[in-house]
């Protein structure tokens, strides 16, 4: 007698659960994307300053922490939009659930604000700060503190940013019920992708030549690491047991294969990789296209893994 059922009939038809799960849509895609991007922006802004051992001179970098916080707020906005019971949103902050990545995330999001603000106050010129109404004096005092304890501030920013970046991957990676997300690569992958999109975002801004060159190198490294991580993930699927293979099927010959390879791998990684190499070697003038592609790729990565992963439940296994 065959081990696998040849016919299965189920009466269950719960909306958004059956016939396949699709509880999270564009809101969470954007949330994850923006979370990664903000993580990248904060880490890179801090890292640039650490590397150059001087406060940023370009206005873009001075303002970047605040821009990042703005983007983060937008991300939290989309998360809020996804909540089915929006009035209960305060419940995230009545508890800390150590086993819940979502809970960690909620609290990390809160930590990012003071860290980002501290960084920003230490970066912005005094003239600008003076113009802040009412809080001007307080802002100046914090700015002074931020400058005096600069390396603490920078490393804190990097730590919080890393937490945020890893969290966006861990959120999915710990949901092992979705066998496709059940991969240790997901956390590092999302962090690296966050760094890469962060770099791309910065490259779209007006920077000085040194900043630009550093960022290009870092982005190249990030893209390479990302490619390696994706390869590791796919290898894991291909060489794993039945469930891993099933999880990989969506990306290796399944419904999401075309989108994944064309949007994420080629458009988001390989093409930018080539163009950035060219730019470094031949000193070609930078075009805005490359970073834009990286951003598209980063968004697509999240959209595709989010959708394909939801689809990959145990129900698909015998």
């Amino acid at each position: 007698m065959h081990r696998l059922p040849v016919e299965t009939v189920t009466t269950r038809l719960n909306h958004a659960i059956d016939p396949s799960l699709h509880i999270w849509g564009w809101e969470i895609t954007l949330y994850l994307f923006l979370g990664g991007l903000v993580a990248g922006l904060l880490i890179l802004t801090a890292a640039l300053e650490l590397t150059r051992r001087q406060r940023p001179t370009s206005a873009a970098l001075q303002w970047m922490p605040l821009v990042a916080l703005g983007l983060l707020s937008a991300g939290m906005g989309t998360l809020f939009l996804d909540l089915e019971f929006k009035l209960h949103v305060y419940r995230f902050y009545l508890a800390f659930r150590p086993h819940s990545p979502m809970s960690w995330g909620a609290w990390i999001l809160l930590l990012v604000y003071p860290a980002g603000l501290l960084l920003a106050l230490g970066s912005l010129p005094e003239t600008t700060l003076r113009r802040v109404p009412l809080l001007g004096r307080l802002a100046l005092r914090i700015a002074a503190w931020s400058q005096q304890n600069r390396s603490l501030v920078l490393w804190t920013t990097i730590a919080v940013g890393a937490g945020l970046g890893v969290y966006t991957g861990l959120l999915l990676g710990t949901l092992t019920a979705r066998i496709q997300w059940n991969s240790a690569v997901l956390g590092p992958l999302f962090l690296t992708s966050g760094l890469s999109t962060g770099a791309a975002f910065l490259l779209l801004c007006k920077l000085d030549a040194v900043e630009r060159a550093l960022l290009l190198r870092w982005d190249l490294a990030a893209i390479l690491v990302e490619l390696l991580l994706i390869a590791a993930m796919l290898l894991g699927f291909a060489s794993g047991g039945a469930s891993a293979q099933l999880a990989g099927a969506a990306l290796l010959g399944g419904p999401w294969t075309a989108a994944f390879w064309s949007l994420v791998v080629v458009t988001g990684l390989l093409v930018p990789l080539a163009m950035e190499l060219l730019e470094l070697r031949r000193h070609l003038p930078l075009v805005a296209l490359t970073p834009a592609l990286v951003l598209v790729g980063g968004l697509a990565l999240r959209a595709i893994l989010l959708a394909a992963g939801q689809d990959s439940g145990y129900r698909l296994l015998p």
Partner: peptide
């Protein structure tokens, strides 16, 4: 207490 974040569903 439920926010409807759906993490539990996933």
């Amino acid at each position: 207490k439920c926010t409807g974040c759906k993490a539990c569903i996933a």
